[in-house]
Design a protein around this nucleic acid. Structure first.
Lengths: 198, 198
DNA sequence: CTGGTCTGACTGACCGGTCAGTCTAGATAT
DNA sequence: ATATCTAGACTGACCGGTCAGTCAGACCAG
């Protein structure tokens, strides 16, 4: 399966480049050079530049979604589960900054439009929301959470991840999870919740 | 000042196109046609395609920042002020969906890199955070808010706006503001805060 | 008439995509 | 064991379409 390795390597290199520059600024030649292959080889793995690009992006989101599903799988108390899910997302992105930028860029564009590939993108993207939403709903069912609009607030949670990562503040994954979940669950209205001091 | 009008019209048309397609998919000819000008005219207003693009983006963020500053200017009780600020952002984007996509795309890319134009972008972008952060700090100073990391949480708030807008749920601006501010201030941990019933 | 603005046909660099040719690894024959 | 063949992956020089950017002339307004 040497060919598979090569393909994967191309994806990794392409990801790096696409994350760093605009689509049209990344030349097929650049990708080829970066991956130590000839330009022609790219075309024996991917139909064209667009296909390569989508393969990159798609590969990234599939990885992320796997982590996510895994984290949401084992059932624990709602809050703990929520932390686990957020932890999964943040861990993945911390280890793959490249994908973070790439996915951010991609779904900034992800409007209503629908070129076949966008369709798949949309559905993978939606799955993340579904997972988060189901965690919230479980919390509501158990009486632990008060979440009037689970779907919407699932979007909010996912958005918070992006915010924290783009903030530039250098925090550990745990710290990020804490900021997000604490803010989300306990709010910023005075009266610290329970965690503050002894 | 006919020339100014024309220039503005070009910006508006270009914004629409750039929001709908990738940079390299938008042709100067398309922009010219959309704006009912000849291609050459574009070059008497903007040095090149990149300059035009950045002018579009920059124009958008300047408008937004003006609204934002205005909203944060008059001082009111912290919570009310926070609502006003969020309202300003959401109102602007609701009226200018185009800019929402455009700005989202642009700052997805906005990594550490620094091509002169990006520098300016970065600083305008930062100003939004500064405004939100100062609102939070005022709330903390007055003892109304409990916000351990004002800057970070300012990012979170801005991110929530994006989340809600991308969610696809069709809500009025007021409803969006409420979801965001309520979540941010009161949290999702059971025990509804104060607003629920009688 | 004249200074300025606009126009759109034109040009040439550039880059996505191709393909004839090379190389390698394995299979088969001797 | 070694020679020969073959499949198919890889290579990179090349091609040709595409567009950003130009500029000679049309078209005004004063």
């Amino acid at each position: 399966m040497k060919s598979q390795e090569r393909r994967d390597n191309i994806l990794v290199c392409a990801a790096r480049l696409f994350a760093a520059a605009r689509f049209d600024e990344v030349l097929m030649e650049d990708i080829a050079r970066e991956a130590s292959v000839a330009k022609g080889t790219l075309y024996s793995h991917f139909a064209d530049k667009d296909a390569l690009y989508f393969a990159v992006v798609f590969d990234g989101i599939l990885q992320l979604n796997n982590h996510l599903r895994a984290a949401a799988a084992q059932d624990r108390p709602p809050e703990e589960q929520l932390r686990a899910v957020m932890n999964a997302i943040l861990t993945f992105f911390s280890r793959n900054r490249v994908f973070f930028r790439l996915l951010s860029m991609e779904d900034a564009k992800a409007g209503p439009g629908g070129s076949e590939s966008r369709q798949r993108w949309q559905s993978e993207r939606t799955e993340q929301i579904d997972v988060i939403e189901s965690v919230l709903r479980r919390g509501v069912a158990g009486g632990d959470f008060h979440v009037p609009q689970p779907r919407l607030q699932a979007f909010v949670l996912r958005g918070m991840v992006r915010s924290v990562l783009t903030s530039g503040e250098k925090l550990s994954v745990k710290e990020m999870v804490d900021v997000i979940v604490d803010t989300f669950l306990y709010g910023a209205r005075s009266k610290a919740p329970e965690a503050p001091s002894p």
